[in-house]
């Protein structure tokens, strides 16, 4: 299921869309290897989120837990959120100094559509970790942060 894609002209406004994502995140996603939640329960505009990805099996990331920050501005979901790794990682689409996921190197952000969700981004990043050009890259020490 993709949130907000009615296949028709009905547009779920930003805040109600984020409330849907919040509830979905609270229920838990799939096998639990990706998850997300809101940072500040008092922020009525629901801007700051933390995502977590458990490194995929049979890669250098296996057994590691990666924390990310997602920032949904007022123009979300017309525009994608700003996505930044908090946990240090070496990966083709991630700026090695800031941890920012660079949109032009990461398809889902480069070709963003309104129906895409934070869940989609995290799942896609997990797949990206297991891609041939990422799965064997030497990684920074575990538990270090940007």
């Amino acid at each position: 299921m993709t949130i907000g894609s009615a296949g028709s002209s009905i547009v779920v406004p930003r805040n109600f869309r984020l409330l849907e994502e919040l509830e979905r995140g609270e229920k838990g996603i799939g096998d639990g290897t990706v998850s997300y939640g809101m940072d500040d329960g008092d922020d009525i505009y629901m801007r700051s989120w933390t995502g977590t990805i458990i490194g995929p099996l049979n890669t250098v990331h296996e057994g590691r837990i990666y924390q990310l920050k997602l920032f949904c501005d007022k123009d979300y979901p017309e525009k994608p959120p700003i996505v930044r790794f908090h946990t240090r990682i070496k990966m083709a689409c991630v700026n090695h100094e800031t941890g920012v996921v660079e949109a032009k190197k990461f398809g889902i952000l480069a070709n963003w559509q309104r129906e895409f969700t934070m869940e989609n981004i995290l799942i896609q990043l997990k797949k990206e970790m297991a891609a041939s050009y990422n799965r064997k890259l030497a990684q920074p020490p575990e538990g270090t942060y940007y």
């Binding site: 009615a6 028709s8 009905i10 779920v12 805040n15 109600f16």
Partner: peptide
């Protein structure tokens, strides 16, 4: 102030 949305 409130916001209201009529779903599909």
């Amino acid at each position: 102030k409130l916001e209201l949305f009529l779903p599909e």
